Simulated assay, not measured.
Amino acid sequence: MLPWVHIDTGKIPGGEGDLRLLSRGTEFAIFLDRDELMNSRRSASEEALATLTCTRLTHQPKARVLIGGLGMGFTLRTALATLGKDAAVRVAELVPAVVNWARGPLAHIIGGSLDDPRVTLEVADVGRLIGEAASLYDAILLDVDNGPDGLTRAANDRLYGNSGLNAAYAALRPEGVLAVWSSAPDSAFTQRLRKAGFDVREVKARAHAGKGGHHLIWLATKAGN
């Protein structure tokens, strides 16, 4: 088997560790220490995050979507393929190096997504953007850290805690959807979503298309008027 080759290291703001981009042949992966956060060969669940959410918005005029976490761009790319031409997609990525990788060694994976006129990319904390919004988004997609049980940043606990979920509820339009990706189930998070007022559906999604282990996606819908 080919060895992993280190390409670059990116610091997580707040001094909470480093992300490392590695390659092995045509395969790419992003690691935090020894933990693999994402891999170019396992994209099915990230794509499902976008498909499950954005198919609800195909007939929504001028849909407004916020994506937390750029990663390798699988969620963004799938969202753009699903949404209408008049949609607007705002992407928040906390780690500047991840944006650089998207425009550099991972550009062939992300394709032209970052040049799509519907996309606005910001190096920012998605929690801050959510907190600044009021009934603005039709959908918020969170692929941040490893899910509610985060690895990379203690501040992500606030994003998935009661105050963060209340802020997400307020940032959504009526019948808007908060979609959250996770590497594993979390019953306590499901209860927090319900406590915040969401109607919650849990969906298992395979890491590989049609095979392999499962990840979990929460689809949390805000009540309509």
Rank of each mutant, 00 (worst) to 15 (best):
V177L: 00
R173C: 12
L178K: 04
Y160P: 03
F189A: 09
K195G: 14
N166Y: 02
K195Y: 03
A154T: 14
S187V: 10
R173M: 12
P148S: 11
L129S: 07
W181T: 10
K195T: 15
E122N: 03
E122A: 03
G104F: 05
P185I: 12
L114E: 15
V119W: 07
R153P: 10
S182T: 04
G161T: 07
A124I: 07
Y169A: 14
G161N: 02
R128N: 07
A188C: 13
K204P: 08
L172C: 05
A107E: 08
I130F: 01
D186A: 15
V98S: 02
V119P: 00
D115Y: 03
Q191E: 15
P185C: 13
S135Y: 08
Q191P: 00
V177R: 00
E122H: 08
V203D: 11
T152K: 01
L129G: 00
E93V: 03
P174T: 09
L151R: 15
I130A: 01
A154W: 11
V144K: 03
S135Q: 14
R206I: 06
I140T: 01
E132K: 10
V95P: 02
Y169E: 14
G212V: 01
N146L: 09
L106T: 03
G197A: 11
D199E: 13
A134D: 15
V95N: 00
P105Q: 15
D186H: 13
D199W: 09
E132L: 03
R173F: 05
